[in-house]
């Protein structure tokens, strides 16, 4: 049995200008141009679309699920987030350098 199904291309779909391209699925195709042609009807025949990408599946390098823990945060990383900070609603500086405030 010879395999005649072509290569696998991953398809990314942009719904409107300004949106990110989102991964929607794959197509089998013999070359990139045909992959685009095929992706248009398989993945954009209903939903609005302004732009499509196709990428050979073989070009994608991915992390291993077994290494999922590399994404864990072992220590408190709340300093990266806006909610990691407490700031007063109002601040009034006093003469001796002390400030009075209402906690947020």
């Amino acid at each position: 049995m010879t395999d005649t199904q072509g290569d696998v291309y991953e398809v990314f779909h942009q719904q409107s200008r300004g949106d990110p391209h989102i991964y929607v699925g794959s197509v089998h195709a013999p070359d990139p141009e045909m992959a685009l042609l095929m992706a248009k009807e398989q993945y954009a025949r209903r939903q609005a679309c302004v732009n499509l990408w196709v990428v050979p599946a073989s070009a994608i390098l991915a992390t291993e699920y077994a290494d999922e823990d590399i994404f864990d945060r072992a220590t408190d990383k709340s300093y990266r987030e806006s909610w990691g900070y407490k700031t007063p609603k109002t601040v009034r500086a006093t003469e001796d350098g002390e400030s009075t405030n209402d906690e947020d």
């Binding site: 005649t4 072509g6 013999p30 070359d31 990139p32 141009e33 045909m34 732009n51 990408w53």
Partner: peptide, 24 residues
């Protein structure tokens, strides 16, 4: 459809990969 798929595969071997669209 086999001859069609085989012809496409043979054609793909002889074709330069097209430039991606300017957007990417």
């Amino acid at each position: 459809g086999r001859w069609v798929r085989e012809a496409l595969e043979a054609a793909a071997k002889n074709r330069p990969i097209p430039m991606p669209p300017a957007s990417i």
